[in-house]
Design a protein around this nucleic acid. Structure first.
Lengths: 231, 231
DNA sequence: AAGATACTGTGTAAAATTTACACCATTAAA
DNA sequence: TTTAATGGTGTAAATTTTACACAGTATCTT
């Protein structure tokens, strides 16, 4: 005998906390909602998961539809399931984060009508957000803060070629504390996954710094051996 | 204008990975299912979330109904949302772990008909489990392994009074590696959150070891200052 | 072209932490 | 009293972390 599933009107959604780094500041991606509930409010990009897509797939699709961004490596970090978190019914939401290099070229352009626009906003002094999105953001921010030292988070936020000072100021932005320049460099270089390039920084009105690249392969070798992270 | 939620037949469930420690072995709680699908299979305790309860509340209720265990501190760790993970429809599941002292007194007795029985099984050599429960278990196991050093995991698994050797063998079971006795003790005691008691171990046929207690208060002081963990 | 400006890049010593390692002490049972 | 089994302890070496300051270089200004 089969026992049928109940036919609740329950729905699950995805919300995305997308981090970027620009002008020495950590930012996240917000949208202006164009749909009830919370029409006209600012919110994290998020929408409802379809019946025939996995939540990982849904995360990619939804981010794309609301912001035009594609092919980010999205990582699930928590699920929010309070009864009244959505005013129209029971909706639990699975939250994902991703990291991206902000650059002017990639336009932020919602593909659906649900978002009026998408834009970057500094993580400090976030406005009030729709639903429980402020809590979702905070949880996600704590997550990447803790993972900064175990996962290649910093290198997804920086341009492909970066200076050690840029790397350091990213660490400082995420951890929200000052680090010692000499010790920071010593430590980072000692890992052996930064490749020094023959190039220098351009367009600065002072001594140009050396550029470095992140060597993902070496990184994987070093960190996968220690303790497998998985999910 | 309100936009109504879609009326999918989608359902969310909770699955629980409950760890216990007994006879020097790490164990988890399994049930024998008494309901389709996977009737008669072994599985993690899990069931469907009701419309009017938060997922955290659901986790407690479901564990109780399937095993008779109550008042555990359940921690959400991952959500599984592949399209075909449930043969009867679209069900995503939010996985929780909890830690408990196993002791003979607390009987494992399912309160509902959905489970025929509940019992402890060593984490090594787990049998085939229903659904994607093997993956869920693995993910949860990795989680607590990583958290062992940041969260008071060990002390929820041990009896209230324990010896340092018991503590060490728990660490060894979770991390799956041998530790040095002297270094382990030095380290643990240096934290200052273990309180030495005036009592000794009983019922052993060799020199009895001192008993210690975990001082949750001091622990919180030490670790909350460092970096707030949250979710 | 001289000087001002702004950031780059580097080393060392002290302190703290981690690691490796072995044997006598104590209890109960035989 | 002897045996069996585990408890409990210290030190030295190696490694990692921390604190700390100034000369070098590219560009811009005058």
């Amino acid at each position: 005998m089969e026992t049928a599933l109940p036919t609740f009107n329950s729905v699950f959604s995805i919300d995305c906390v997308i981090f970027g780094f620009e002008a020495g500041e950590l930012k996240i991606l917000l949208i202006e909602r164009n749909q009830e509930p919370f029409k006209d409010w600012l919110a994290l990009p998020g929408y409802i998961v379809e019946q025939d897509e996995s939540i990982d797939d849904a995360a990619e699709r939804i981010l794309y539809e609301l912001t035009g961004l594609r092919d980010l490596h999205m990582q699930q970090f928590h699920t929010f399931g309070e009864v009244n978190r959505h005013p129209q019914g029971r909706v639990i939401t699975v939250a994902y984060y991703a990291l991206i290099r902000i650059n002017g070229q990639k336009e932020l352009r919602p593909v659906t009508q649900y978002a009026r626009k998408a834009f970057w906003h500094p993580v400090n002094e976030l406005p009030k957000l729709a639903f429980d999105h402020t809590e979702i953001f905070q949880t996600g921010f704590n997550k990447i803060r803790r993972r900064l030292n175990y996962q290649p988070i910093a290198f997804e936020l920086l341009p492909e070629k970066f200076t050690l000072t840029q790397l350091q100021s990213l660490y400082e932005a995420v951890l929200n504390k000052k680090l010692d320049k000499r010790n920071f460099r010593k430590k980072m270089l000692s890992y052996g996954f930064l490749k020094e390039l023959d190039e220098k920084q351009k367009g600065v009105s002072y001594r140009a710094a050396k550029l470095y690249k992140f060597d993902r392969r070496k990184y994987a070798k070093i960190f996968n051996n220690e303790l497998n992270l998985d999910k």
